[in-house]
């Protein structure tokens, strides 16, 4: 079964529009230069609302830790079990992190600390998600 499909809303639409064009756009605050992910109505760093815009990042990161989902609760992912779930920190701002199933990395064989790069995976008609793979 495929992954669960994200449902963009008003706030997240620019992000998912970017992903669907294979670009990783994060909220960025013009007032304090902080990146923000997931997107919020206000800048969590300085509180600004009007200064929040979108800025493309390179999509390089590192694996900080991982688990293996062996007995999850999502109907759509049951056949995938066991599968990796890693946390990837963004090189441009390690305070930003993303989940990843690390496609291509065998289950249980996640190299913690390794470098990863973003790529985009189709999970529903016309809907991509950002995924990450270990760079060689």
């Amino acid at each position: 079964m495929p992954k669960v499909i994200p449902a963009p809303d008003e706030l997240s639409k620019p992000f998912w529009d970017g992903v669907n064009k294979k670009r990783l756009l994060l909220q960025n605050c013009a007032a304090c230069d902080a990146y923000q992910y997931p997107p919020r109505e206000t800048c969590a760093t300085c509180g600004s609302v009007e200064s929040l815009g979108w800025k493309e990042v390179r999509g390089r990161g590192h694996i900080s830790s991982y688990i293996v989902i062996e007995d999850g609760r999502l109907d759509r992912r049951m056949p995938d079990q066991p599968y990796n779930l890693a946390v990837v920190t963004l090189d441009e701002d390690p305070g930003i992190n993303f989940y990843s199933n690390l496609p291509g990395t065998p289950v249980h064989q996640v190299p913690v600390g390794a470098a990863v790069e973003v790529f985009f995976e189709e999970v529903g008609p016309g809907q991509l998600i950002h995924e990450w793979r270990v760079t060689r």
Partner: peptide
């Protein structure tokens, strides 16, 4: 957890399996 789509805060976690 039985749904095909992840809405709200779940859009940032559920596609990768974190429910």
């Amino acid at each position: 957890n039985a749904e095909d789509y992840a809405k709200g805060e779940r859009q940032w976690t559920v596609p990768w399996g974190n429910h």
